[in-house]
Computed example of a mutant assay.
Amino acid sequence: MASFTFADVPPMTGRTVVITGANSGIGRVTASALAQRGARVVLAVRNQDKGLAAAATMAGHTEVRSLDLADLSSVREFAHTFTEPIDLLINNAGLSLPPLERTAEGFELQFGTNHLGHFALTNLLLPQVRERVVTVGSLAHLIGSIDFTDLNWQRRRYRAYPAYGQSKLANLLFVHELHRRLTAAGSSVISTAAHPGIATTNLMNADGRGLRFRAEKALISRVSHTAEAGALPTLYAATADVPGNAYVGPDRLLGLRGAPAPARRTAKARDTDTARRLWDASEQLTDTTFPLPSASTERTPAHDTHHH
């Protein structure tokens, strides 16, 4: 693919985009770029003041709505009050490496926010989505594994890095299974994923002490690129002509930085059995289900496909 820049984002006039975590970092850059190209961009953010401050810096049509992915009642409220069609849903928000904390429902915070919150949001909004769902992953999926016996770190000693890796592997398994389900339902909506490489954003500002932390931070600052560069894979996955289940990331330094290109994902991120199993577990944990009828089942599609 030719090198993709902000100038290559197509005109977005008439399209509605919902972006989670759009008040800082990659989400903010993505929101700004799409608003500039004419989209109506809804910043779905936990902190209304920060969202409004970010929106004030953007040209074009922006709105700010409250969404706390770590609280499923907030997710349901957001989805319930969002009745209009959505062209692009961008599952961007994420947090990395906090101390052990729990969501309102008691989920481990990274798994609950990065995966389960977006899982519930996507399923609740999907009947209104017209074009694609983009989920922002991470290179950290490479170190991830899904422990079905202890998804929420209740039995094991909590370790922030493996917990983050699990949440980001879950993102890609979600993209894989969502693509499979959309295809089976005969939907024209596609599910894609992107990762930013290593970008200098708020996620990188985690506090830590000790020599190892300082050494890692120094190394990361040498290889990272800007939030602007880090947002390009998301914009490519959101607007370029890519197939369903595409995964886009930077093309240089093993995916750490560079221009958007097809990205490598581990075999475990493409494992259909694991993806289905995680989907089933996520449905139970969030009490949400895939809302579209399967093409192979007999159901009256009237209320499933109706745009309110």
Rank of each mutant, 00 (worst) to 15 (best):
residue 175 V to N: 06
residue 176 H to C: 04
residue 177 E to R: 04
residue 178 L to A: 01
residue 178 L to P: 01
residue 179 H to T: 10
residue 181 R to V: 03
residue 181 R to I: 07
residue 182 L to H: 07
residue 182 L to N: 02
residue 183 T to D: 13
residue 188 S to C: 14
residue 189 V to I: 05
residue 192 T to I: 04
residue 192 T to W: 05
residue 192 T to G: 03
residue 193 A to W: 08
residue 193 A to P: 08
residue 194 A to W: 04
residue 194 A to I: 05
residue 194 A to Q: 04
residue 195 H to T: 08
residue 197 G to L: 07
residue 198 I to V: 12
residue 202 N to I: 00
residue 203 L to T: 06
residue 204 M to F: 14
residue 205 N to M: 15
residue 207 D to F: 15
residue 208 G to K: 12
residue 208 G to D: 14
residue 210 G to I: 12
residue 211 L to P: 14
residue 211 L to Y: 14
residue 212 R to E: 15
residue 213 F to Q: 11
residue 213 F to C: 13
residue 213 F to P: 10
residue 216 E to Q: 15
residue 216 E to A: 15
residue 217 K to R: 15
residue 218 A to N: 12
residue 219 L to F: 15
residue 220 I to P: 09
residue 221 S to V: 10
residue 222 R to I: 14
residue 223 V to S: 06
residue 225 H to R: 05
residue 228 E to N: 11
residue 228 E to V: 06
residue 231 A to R: 04
residue 231 A to M: 09
residue 232 L to R: 04
residue 233 P to S: 01
residue 233 P to D: 02
residue 235 L to E: 02
residue 235 L to V: 06
residue 237 A to I: 03
residue 238 A to G: 09
residue 239 T to W: 00
residue 240 A to T: 00
residue 240 A to L: 00
residue 241 D to W: 08
residue 241 D to H: 13
residue 242 V to F: 03
residue 242 V to S: 07
residue 245 N to M: 02
residue 246 A to P: 04
residue 246 A to S: 12
residue 247 Y to M: 00
residue 247 Y to F: 04
residue 249 G to D: 00
residue 250 P to Q: 09
residue 251 D to T: 06
residue 253 L to A: 10
residue 253 L to N: 08
residue 254 L to N: 09
residue 256 L to N: 00
residue 258 G to N: 08
residue 259 A to L: 11
residue 261 A to P: 04
residue 261 A to Q: 08
residue 263 A to Y: 01
residue 263 A to D: 08
residue 268 K to M: 07
residue 268 K to E: 07
residue 269 A to W: 01
residue 271 D to P: 00
residue 272 T to V: 15
residue 273 D to K: 11
residue 274 T to H: 06
residue 275 A to M: 03
residue 275 A to V: 02
residue 276 R to N: 13
residue 276 R to T: 13
residue 278 L to W: 07
residue 281 A to H: 11
residue 282 S to Y: 08
residue 283 E to V: 02
residue 284 Q to I: 09
residue 285 L to T: 03
residue 287 D to E: 12
residue 288 T to V: 05
residue 288 T to C: 09
residue 288 T to P: 06
residue 289 T to C: 12
residue 289 T to Q: 14
residue 293 P to V: 06
residue 293 P to T: 10
residue 294 S to P: 12
